[in-house]
Design a protein around this nucleic acid. Sequence first.
DNA 1: GCATAGAATGCACACGTTAACAATATCGTT
DNA 2: AACGATATTGTTAACGTGTGCATTCTATGC
Lengths: 335, 335
Amino acid sequence: MAVTIKDIAKLANVSHTTVSRALNNSPLINPQTKKRILEIAKELNYTPNLNAKSLVLHRSYHIGLFFTTLSTGTSPGFFHEAVRGANQHIKDHYDLIVKGIDDYEDLTKITSNMFDGILVMSQSPADDRFIEHLLNINIPTVVLNRLVSLPVEANIVSDDYEGAFQAVRYLIDRGHRRIALISGIEGFQSTEERKKGYIEALKTSQIEPSPDLIKQGHYDMKSGYQAMRSLLAESLLPTAVFCSNDDMAVGAIKAIHESGMRVPDDISVVGFDDNVFAGFITPSLTTVRRPIEKICAEGARCLLENIENSQSFKQPIYLRTTLVKRESVADVRSE
Amino acid sequence: MAVTIKDIAKLANVSHTTVSRALNNSPLINPQTKKRILEIAKELNYTPNLNAKSLVLHRSYHIGLFFTTLSTGTSPGFFHEAVRGANQHIKDHYDLIVKGIDDYEDLTKITSNMFDGILVMSQSPADDRFIEHLLNINIPTVVLNRLVSLPVEANIVSDDYEGAFQAVRYLIDRGHRRIALISGIEGFQSTEERKKGYIEALKTSQIEPSPDLIKQGHYDMKSGYQAMRSLLAESLLPTAVFCSNDDMAVGAIKAIHESGMRVPDDISVVGFDDNVFAGFITPSLTTVRRPIEKICAEGARCLLENIENSQSFKQPIYLRTTLVKRESVADVRSE
DNA sequence: GCATAGAATGCACACGTTAACAATATCGTT
DNA sequence: AACGATATTGTTAACGTGTGCATTCTATGC
């Protein structure tokens, strides 16, 4: 069995209370005995039983990182960046529990003694039910990636509207006028923000958005491929396509190539996310970089701030996107 | 505060012990009272305090999934598949804690009461120290992805040697003779297995492996790119390149394109892993599919089997790779 | 030499749960 | 009616830790 403070107490000829105090830097202890106790603890390789601590202190030392889903709805790059960002600030004093919200069929199974705090990497408005439950049972909650109007401790998002706006402005500046949109999963806030950015950018140049040029995708390669095929079947082809994420951009490029056309010579393509492979496909992809890792790291920082100093952040925190210019966009041919 | 079994006991006019029995399907209880208690529990929205349970049952309800590192050494697709595979069997009764071995500077901070079991997604022989420590403190341990000679509960790997062998045989069958290798991180077992498969396949056709055709990479796109550039600088070019993973293959393709040559017309490329984007880049990548998700799912299954029925699996379990044939390989030109 | 403040330590209980054992209730058998 | 067997429930301690309060020790001042 593992060594406990009582074992140490015996060896040190003190009560277990004294040992507890020594290990927790209590001021009510003689520095001498403290030193002695710490030495014994070290020698016995003592490590506290976190379950017991949890029980009495009402702290679990666990931080939850919840995704809308862990399955195919979440892209690998996104997922990896998120976990890395979150773990970065957390790893020393907390453990990170990764879960999909859809893992639970019954939300009441989650209780406040299981998590000291939760990061919700939210990808859908349907997550609100989950977030409300967390607030109900009083778990400090930080929502990432999606603007939310609930009273969470912090809400950290990338400025997708601005990112999309810039990307489409960039296309317009390079002479494009027939610019298509391959949109994301319906209902996702990111989908709506990017679409709005697209539409507003067009409007600043008096280009009327055409329904024929807007196709719905599902944020995966396959749907990008299919959406592009559907665009290519239209009578009037676009000169550029703005895709709501990189995965769909890759699918779109494949469809364009299959139809015998070339990127960017015939059709320009812009993505969103700057996935790990965006720079390495051919042609390398011009895209909007979202600082996912930073969003998560910042979220974890805010969450710890809340847990340890009960600080909250009322205003949503926006982190800037940046347009990464690569090879998938060409100036439009003057005909 | 949350509701406890004592609250239920009061309402039901029984002792808390009886409540505990009702909730745990004990045979020592009157079905009548059991029913009554369960109803009250439901009404109060009772959820057990897992920390208290943990303390007395010596179970934490946490499974650890450890990677050699969470940072750039681990590819996003690999990471995502692994987490999904592991979570699949675990999510109902356990929580998954994701960590990098390199998060710990002091291994003794890990104790057996923190994890009911641990999956080690091992990418380097250096992980052995960690695994030995887990065995020392008696945590059920399953090692994935790397063959290990320690007495762990189970060891599940893909047959990389066989996969590499098949891939290179395939190239030979299509007429290639000057076949280069872009190798992985030095010292990783996967690197060595794939290299061996490459060399043995060549030998079966009496092709002597040439040091000039073997370049070291680091499993990331950039190193694949650089290794390929270094190959292209040689006097005699290869007709095909076998890359130890897909990321490096993507980098290699980029380097080939930059040099004005085409894939597969001038040089064929084969990868390893079948990353999510392997099918969507241009040309789509011929590669060896490793069943990462299945490895993790199987590992989780074995681990649970061990925790709940204390079963162990002495023999390593090999899961088959498959060669996925796509467009990045051409028959060699008869000159 | 003694009262006293202050420092250091210990005692006993609490956290929420399970489990060995004891106690009681119920029932059938003679 | 009395006994034993069995079914059901309660009592109590335990898991390892932290903490309010009581206790003891030490040094100081008079």
